[in-house]
Design a protein around this nucleic acid. Structure first.
Length: 119
DNA sequence: ACCATGACTATAA
DNA sequence: CTTATAGCCATGG
């Protein structure tokens, strides 16, 4: 049972969408962020599904949910973390500037799976 | 199957 | 930028 270098859809026919989202989120580099819509589009699914997956990602260590924000670069999910300030703290720890729950230089550090993974 | 809800997004005003 | 509306997909009652 080796690690999943790539997504291993062995058996588990259920909740495949969640696993897909986790795999993509785990690929987001430090200091970069992505949006629900970008991931959703990459997986050919709805943006709300990504948010739902993140909600279920609580407790899954390997999923850096703090690197996923909405299309405005707003930390919309910060209240879903252990603390309302934890998300911002984690992002700032990676060198990301945040003012009033809004990511600065958003377009600069934005990470789109459809672009970054298709090079 | 229908209805309500949710860490969303595109569009219009 | 905000507000309102519609579309989106999965989950739960």
């Amino acid at each position: 049972m080796a690690k999943t270098g790539t997504i291993n859809w062995s058996k588990k026919s259920k909740m495949q969408s969640f696993e897909e989202v986790y795999e993509v989120v785990k690929l987001i580099p430090e200091g970069r962020v992505s949006s629900y819509g970008a991931i959703a589009k990459y997986l050919s699914t709805g943006a709300r599904l990504v948010g739902w997956a993140m909600n279920a990602a609580h407790g899954l260590h390997d999923v850096p949910a703090h690197r996923v924000v909405n299309r405005n670069g707003i930390l919309t999910g910060k209240f879903h973390f252990e603390s309302p300030t934890l998300m911002q703290e984690l992002l700032e720890a990676e060198g990301i500037e945040i003012v009033a729950d809004k990511i600065q230089n958003f377009s600069k550090i934005y990470w789109d799976p459809q672009i970054e993974l298709s090079l």
